[in-house]
Design a protein around this nucleic acid. Structure first.
Lengths: 322, 322
DNA sequence: TTGTACGCGTTATCAA
DNA sequence: TTGATAACGCGTACAA
């Protein structure tokens, strides 16, 4: 459309003067300043950001890479975008569906200077591949990761899980069944550690009950509720890896005419929106602050400044299922 | 980093030949083609997309503008990003919080050529302002809108609402209370039209019961459930503008020891994830297809081609609350 | 089939 | 305080 040259002509100055006025750099006489401003007003001028990005070698744009869009990811995304916008950055979204090729396209976007940095929610490719892209720009992860050049804003789930376990204990439950997620995830390992320590601390036998593994969906939770009715050694409480499985458990139990927490208690994890609807006790953690920290780390690296990170804490939300 | 010139030097050809090889334009001898490819491999070359965008005058990037991130918006976003990615576009997210200034920043991004087009989920500014930006690039809306240059992928809620009303009627409910959303929204007007026609068709008195207006949240729904218990003229069914208020109604009713649908039936709208957990009867509509259509319209305008749109249909999901 | 030269719209350096 | 000029990296018209 209209460019800096045209408004220079119109104002009777050189393009460089226009640039100076618009960016507030260098000295410009009041008179010319006024004329430039007037001209750019009249011509409906807007700087072409592609040219600016090319010149500056930076886009002030960050790529956010997520496998999909469940409520947790959505919260992270919302928090991240808000923080980024407040800091003068915009966010381009890459949804991978855990497909390695799609994920790689996002990494390539960094290499191609489409974005200045990447925030990875959860990734599918090998860590070594991710790391190999760190030389093109800052990369941070939400997922727990141990890598020199890939900082992570994860929270140690050990603490959150322990909070849930201790809560169940204090409510009198002694036969607690763990509903774990994917055992290959470090978060799950932390949870298992927490349970072991918990049992040791209270003199419980951690092998008394059978636990569940690789559980993540509502359907999984529903299945567990049905299994409970036929189980010979029934737990008096379940603690789940996320609210989806916990909610499935609660919902199906109620359909079966069981009472929660009369027949068994349920403690979830994540404090998703529907947890409130089901009166589900759960563990809350500040996803939006995690996202804010992720942005702060990225921004710190891009602008080479030291930005403070917010401390993160788990928080028990007690409702009616315990 | 490394640019087209360097790899030209390395391959012993001119920059234009490199460009031709990389873009598959024009004739290049097999020999030089190989050398160029080899050189760009060795030097880890990646075209700078800012330069390409500047040169082409287009970014292949679309802005998605949403007030926030509830589940409906999340679905639209997911569908839109997937469609865009499949079409070779990327999506930059603008979250406005219904703040007019923030929203305007997204519009400005179009003017500044940061994006080629905009998809507006729901907007806060006057339609006339939105329209004034249409000259900078295609703009489509999810929200129902009547404007010459702003196509919309809305679905006429009249049909969906009627589906719910007829369903309730067929299940024997005759005292149906409407739980409307914001009366300033065209969707709500459509719903009121549907109810009027529904009453006329079945010889019901549309003024027999008091209806609710400006209802949108879980808390609103909970409040309505409590009001029901004290109401002199009790409805035997509620039909809500969205699943949030419907879910609040159901959840609070159950807390109060009421039976749904024993005491009253509830039909929601949107078929959000938690509807299944609460066994809520609701109206489903294909948000992802709407998003796909939104992208198709945008792409059609950008590339000046005719793209087919998927037909959209409402669908009753009967569960246990009716 | 290939190379030269210019332009996309900015910003920054330098000399005046 | 100002303007000419170069440079960011690429694509392409044109000439050869």
């Amino acid at each position: 459309m209209t460019n800096i040259k045209e408004i220079a002509a119109r104002a009777g100055v050189s393009p460089s003067t226009v640039s100076r006025v618009l960016n507030g750099n260098g000295y410009v006489s009041e008179d010319k300043k006024r004329r430039v401003l007037a001209a750019s007003e009249e011509l409906d001028y807007a700087p072409n950001l592609n040219a600016v990005s090319l010149k500056r070698g930076a886009t002030r744009r960050i790529g956010l890479v997520a496998p999909m869009f469940d409520e947790s990811v959505q919260r992270f995304t919302g928090g991240f975008v808000r923080a980024a916008q407040a800091g003068g950055y915009s966010v381009t979204l890459f949804i991978t569906g855990m497909d390695r090729v799609r994920e790689r396209e996002a990494l390539e976007a960094l290499r191609h200077k489409q974005v200045d940095a990447l925030a990875l929610v959860i990734f599918a490719n090998d860590l070594s591949l991710i790391e190999s892209y760190a030389k093109y720009g800052p990369i941070v992860a939400w997922q727990r990761v141990v890598a020199e050049h890939i900082p992570s804003v994860f929270m140690n789930q050990y603490d959150g899980y322990m909070l849930g376990l201790e809560h169940l204990y204090s409510r009198g439950y002694r036969r607690i069944c763990n509903v774990y997620g994917s055992t290959s995830r470090l978060n799950t390992v932390s949870r298992m550690d927490a349970y072991r320590d918990f049992c040791a601390a209270h003199g419980l036998d951690e092998h008394e009950l059978e636990h569940f593994y690789e559980i993540s969906t509502i359907e999984d939770g529903e299945r567990i509720a049905r299994l409970w009715t036929e189980s010979p050694r029934r737990p008096d409480a379940f603690i789940a890896a996320n609210d989806y499985s916990a909610a499935g458990l609660v919902a199906e139990a109620r359909r079966l005419g069981l009472s929660v927490p009369g027949d068994f208690a349920v403690c979830g994890f994540d404090n998703l929106e529907f947890a409130r609807l089901l009166d589900l006790t759960t563990i809350h953690y500040p996803v939006d602050l995690q996202a804010g920290n992720a942005f702060a780390i990225i921004r710190g690296r891009i602008e080479d400044i030291e930005l403070p990170l917010r401390p993160l804490q788990f928080h028990l939300v007690q409702r009616a299922t315990t």
